[in-house]
């Protein structure tokens, strides 16, 4: 029968626990350069040292938290942008921008693809909601006089973002390739044709020909899924950064 001996060595279980805790701590420290955010200082560090959060100020005034000042309209605009990006990327797995396939692909999304109808509706209603919320956000900024110096540059960035929102909406309009799309974009690009001096050329470049066809579809698709979202993402980053740098207009 083994006799119990006193050993200078620690319990093996304790050793394993300590080693894994040390390893976990080392992994944590390799990702985060601050300790657990439970104080004002570490919370500030958590915001400052994170690439996603650092566009946001580390601290804001209590008065700025009043929901009825902003109604979160800017944040909601960004939220819808994210919803549209995610649902749009998912739709891209099934949609082919070809005049022979596009319409059928949309119908398949609604009838064959699992949750396809839901995705399409999310993208469609999200787009409508984004236009409405962006407009309301602009109204709020106007009525609270938040466009005045030193924020006039951010107002300009915001106007560009409004234009990008409209262009994203309009370029997405053609993609279902049904009668509504076709004639809406025919009318829309005829408006471009009315531009003084360069009208016909502008329309020709936009639709890649003299009438809406395959060239127009692929052009609108590329603008819709790459060029315009990329431009919007860059301007959104600038917009947020300037909010941080110029200070929040409420509660001053």
């Amino acid at each position: 029968m083994a006799t119990k001996k006193s050993s200078p060595r620690r319990n093996p279980l304790d050793q394993v626990m300590q080693a894994s805790a040390a390893f976990g701590s080392r992994v944590y420290k390799s990702v985060f350069r601050h300790s657990w955010p439970d104080s004002a200082r570490t919370r500030s560090l958590a915001t400052m040292s994170n690439v996603f959060l650092h566009l946001h100020p580390t601290t804001i005034r209590r008065a700025s938290l009043k929901v009825t000042y902003t109604f979160c309209l800017g944040g909601l605009s960004f939220f819808f942008f994210l919803v549209l990006t995610v649902s749009g990327v998912l739709l891209m797995f099934y949609y082919v921008p070809s005049v022979t396939q596009a319409y059928q692909d949309i119908k398949d999304l609604q009838t064959v693809v699992f949750a396809g109808q839901f995705l399409r509706n999310m993208h469609r209603w999200g787009a409508h909601a984004m236009v409405i919320v962006v407009f309301l956000h602009m109204c709020r900024v106007f009525y609270t006089r938040a466009y005045r110096p030193p924020r006039e540059f951010n107002w300009v960035v915001g106007v560009l973002l409004l234009v990008l929102t409209f262009l994203l909406s309009f370029s997405g309009y053609l993609l279902p390739w049904d009668q509504l799309s076709f004639w809406a974009v025919t009318v829309g690009t005829n408006i471009a044709k009315a531009t003084p001096f360069v009208g016909p050329e502008a329309q020709f470049l936009l639709i890649g020909g003299y009438e809406i066809g395959q060239n127009a579809l692929i052009r609108f698709y590329t603008l819709h899924v790459i060029a315009l979202p990329l431009a919007a993402a860059v301007l959104i980053a600038v917009h947020f950064w300037r909010v941080r740098k110029d200070g929040f207009s409420g509660g001053l």
Partner: peptide, 12 residues
């Protein structure tokens, strides 16, 4: 590059 050469529809 963006100016299309092959249009092949009504108008061309």
């Amino acid at each position: 590059m963006f100016w299309p050469k092959k249009v092949g529809s009504f108008g061309s």
